[in-house]
Design a protein around this nucleic acid. Structure first.
Length: 807
RNA sequence: GGGCGAUUAGCUCAGUUGGCUAGAGCACCUGGUUUACACCCAGGGGGUCACAGGUUCGAAUCCUGUAUCGCCCACCA
């Protein structure tokens, strides 16, 4: 082995080796147990920050661990280049709007433009030592993905899980598309609470308080709470709005008597309550908004055609002139806005495609119980979301770019004309159906203009990975997938929608385990974001400065589901561990030059210290395996460090040094040296295997430099994860006996430190008292070796070990 | 308003089912050029475990309440 390990040089060479040897390839022909990972496809929009590294590395360690358990690991990578962020990026790069190109051409442009970003990801990922099988990479804008997305739609349509309804949906007038409940954000907006005077036909006045006076032309009725005695006399009468319309006054217990004046007008549609009321009281809706957010059908020329905001101002003026406006109080209130553009949402009845989910809430809750949630408490977020769903899933979007809805409509019968599954993907805007219904010409049909919500596609990542419906469909092998890693902020979207699709298509859970990671914060309570520019260092800089293994070490420190504050010192700590592992291995192996594993001494024949370290190693390996199986990365890391740094390096190696350097100083020294070498050999080999999922580079380097010569596997990453199981009868009490020895070592070290002596300073003799002379004496050779004492007398005395030193 | 989580050393965080004297790294102090490593070794100082009650032989850990913070959701007339 060489003296120095320089990660900046070694890591790149090792990565090249892994790629050339296809160490991480998924083997479709193998009959080994498969471990499949539903990798989150990151949005291809140009920026990769340390937060990505954090969560993906945790998954990657699991991939390596499962591979070392002997499983056939299916570890793909995906690129989400179908979303709006990518669309914007591509528009900017090609200088054209998506709508200026054919859908297919724009998709091609997306693939072209994002190619370099995909390449950047791949390079960074490889430089982190990510054991992805790149031949399994997919893109969400590719033809294959579009085929699967359309296939999903067609099958759900045939199963009547999808239907087109002229139902009110949340609508964004800016993007001019419907949006799903999950895409809605709250925003604090400045507004006015307007008190407007209504009258009844019998000339009684009352006040309606509203933030949406422009909805007045769509006023259908006025509600009061049935128990509200203040207004009981009004119920059943007709009210006259300031615009002169006559509407009934009704009761409903959803009215909050405390709010506003206690009277509320119901307009189609001001908010979701209005929607409910229209259904419940069978009111006839009146729609006064166009898709672009302009007024129509108001019955007034001075309002029709005005944009919402403008209309609001105008109507306030009208009301003022009319004397109906009593007061306008400025308020701040939360408004539902589209998360993409921040525009307040409207509710409009336009034809939309829906997947019916409200009827199946319980089924989706049941599926969640079949999935293991890590950490467990994250499930409650899902449960709460599902329980509170109010809308079916609107999957159509009135945008130009995206996966087309594969449907043509008949102008004559209104029936759907659908493509064959084998013809997918199709673009109805560009293509004609292969077979027209009887009596139809091309003139009699029109294409569905909408595209699918991106979640309708992203929710199919298991199916995309499985090449669902293709000739080489591998659903049987990899579905349900073993593991879904993702962050907590998209439980209600990605996790939920994936469960919906899996349930509807296959009737079962999409994965066995869902593993939720936290976010990386730039500082206390500060999210890393591109706009703030608070990601001080790039992943590349950190890898270059500390090594990939060190960055990976940091990523293992987070607790599952919890956000962590970025701490560069943790990476520095990782760098130290890399160095320590190399040096300890290098040193230990130097002392194994004439050793061959064929000559390994039986454990029962070894010296007590050598048996002790093996027992500690056994425990460490057992615990690490358990922790990694449970995705408890930080626990595994901690257990490793405790053993490796303290027990193995600081104590064990120091203890056996003398026996290895100068066996002639001991009676039967050759055997005692072989005993030490046997434990050192097994420890180092086990240590690097235990650490291999965390630090794949330095461990591989040690393996290639030494152990490879005795082993058949060409890479440490193809070795099996260590499982040790020793005969319990071999020195059953060695661990507690060792405690006395370690106590003695500490006392001697303390003595030397306090007396400002070198730790290697020779001592004339030690006078020791210990609870068991016999047991401590078993370590006599090593006591002399590690303390450099020429003589040591042990006397029996209960209690702690005590020491007197003669220099 | 509902749900979930957090509060432990100056800083960043561990602390498995309640159990020896509450741990680690960094920072701080003292000592050591030890033939693996100064990216090291040895020793040391530093915590009323947010607060108040309760359960228990025993609580950082379980229960109740309070405070502060974060996330998710709801409220929006």
């Amino acid at each position: 082995m060489s003296q120095k390990y320089i990660p900046q040089e070694a890591e790149a060479l090792l990565q090249k080796f892994w790629e050339e040897e296809k160490i991480y390839a998924y083997d479709p022909k193998s009959d080994k147990e498969i471990f499949s990972i539903d990798t989150p496809p990151p949005t291809v929009s140009g920026s990769i920050h340390i937060g990505h590294i954090f969560s993906y590395t945790q998954t990657e360690v699991t991939a390596r661990f499962q591979r070392m358990l002997g499983k056939n690991v299916f570890y793909p990578f995906g690129f989400d280049d179908n979303g709006l962020p990518t669309e914007r990026l591509v528009e900017k790069r090609i200088g054209k709007k998506a709508s200026e190109l054919e859908r297919k051409d724009f998709a091609d442009q997306c693939l072209t433009v994002t190619a370099e970003y995909r390449e950047a990801y791949k390079i960074l990922w490889q430089s982190m030592g990510m054991s992805v099988d790149w031949s399994l990479a997919y893109s969400t804008v590719s033809e294959e993905t579009q085929r699967i997305s359309q296939l999903s739609f067609l099958r759900l349509l045939k199963d009547k899980e999808v239907e087109q309804k002229n139902a009110a949906a949340l609508f964004c007038p800016e993007c001019q598309t419907s949006v799903a409940q999950a895409e809605v954000d709250d925003a604090e907006k400045d507004s006015f609470f307007h008190d407007i005077r209504f009258t009844t036909e019998t000339n009684e006045d009352f006040i309606i308080a509203t933030t949406r006076p422009e909805m007045l032309p769509a006023c259908l009725c006025v509600f009061v709470h049935p128990n509200d005695e203040r207004f009981a006399h009004l119920v059943g009468k007709n009210a006259v709005t300031p615009l002169g319309t006559s509407v009934p006054i009704l009761t409903d217990d959803l009215v909050d008597p405390e709010k506003g004046s206690g009277l509320v007008m119901c307009c189609s549609y001001g908010d979701e309550t209005d929607l409910l009321w229209v259904k419940k009281h069978d009111l006839t809706e009146k729609i006064i908004l166009t898709k672009t957010g302009h007024m129509k059908n108001t019955g007034r020329d001075d309002l029709d055609g005005l944009y919402l905001k403008k209309a609001r101002k105008v109507i306030v003026e009208i009301l003022k002139d009319h004397g109906s406006l009593v007061e306008s109080k400025p308020i701040k209130h939360a408004v539902k806005v589209h998360e993409r553009c921040g525009t307040p949402m409207e509710i409009l009845p336009i034809p939309q495609w829906f997947i019916g989910i409200l009827e199946r809430k319980q089924e989706f809750l049941d599926i969640a119980d079949e999935v293991n949630w890590y950490p467990e408490y994250m499930k409650s977020r899902y449960v709460q979301w599902v329980e509170n769903l109010k809308w079916d899933w609107a999957i159509s979007r009135q945008r130009f770019f995206g996966v087309s809805i594969p449907v043509w409509h008949s102008k004559i019968t209104g029936e759907y004309i659908l493509p064959e599954e084998s013809d997918l993907p199709v673009d109805p805007l560009k293509q004609a159906p292969k077979n027209l219904p009887e009596g139809h010409t091309l003139e009699d049909i029109y294409p569905d203009p909408d595209v699918l919500d991106t979640w309708a596609t992203s929710s199919l990542t298991p199916e995309i990975n499985a090449k669902w419906g293709a000739e080489d469909d591998r659903s049987d092998k990899i579905l349900p997938m073993s593991m879904r890693p993702q962050a907590h902020d998209i439980i209600r979207t990605w996790a939920f929608y994936t469960i919906v699709k899996s349930k509807l298509h296959h009737g079962r859970k999409p994965w066995n385990d869902i593993v939720i990671s936290g976010h990386v914060l730039a500082g206390k309570k500060e999210k890393i974001s591109k706009s703030k520019g608070n990601a001080k260092t790039t992943p590349e800089e950190l890898i270059n400065k500390y090594s990939a293994d060190a960055v990976r070490y940091w990523a293992m420190g987070g607790t599952l589901g919890k956000d962590i504050v970025f701490d560069e010192q943790e990476i520095a700590k990782g760098k130290k561990l890399v160095n320590k592992v190399w040096n300890a291995s290098n040193f230990a192996l130097q002392n194994l030059e004439e050793f061959h594993p064929e000559n390994l001494m039986e454990l029962s024949q070894r010296e007590p210290s050598d048996i002790w370290v093996m027992k500690r190693l056994e425990k460490t390996a057992t615990k690490m395996k358990q922790h990694l199986s449970d995705f408890q990365f930080h626990h595994a890391r901690q257990v490793f460090e405790d053993f490796f740094w303290t027990d193995f390096c600081d104590n064990y190696l120091e203890i056996v040094k003398t026996r290895m350097y100068q066996p002639e100083a001991f009676e039967n020294g050759a055997q005692k040296k072989l005993s030490a070498q046997s434990s050192v050999y097994e420890c180092i080999f086990t240590i690097i295997k235990l650490l291999a999922p965390f630090m794949p580079h330095v461990t591989e380097q040690v393996y290639q430099s030494y152990f490879k010569q005795f082993e058949s596997e060409k890479s440490i990453h193809l070795c099996l994860y260590p499982v040790l199981s020793f005969d319990k009868n071999i020195l059953p009490e060695v661990e507690s006996d060792m405690e006395m020895f370690l106590e003695l070592i500490n006392l001697v070290r303390k003595y030397k430190t306090e007396n400002q002596l070198k730790l290697s300073e020779e001592l004339k003799s030690l006078q020791v008292t210990a609870p068991s002379v016999e047991k401590l004496s078993a370590f006599m050779d090593d006591i002399k070796g590690v303390t450099k004492a020429k003589a040591c007398d042990i006397l029996q005395k209960d209690g702690d070990v005590e020491l007197k030193v003669e220099r």
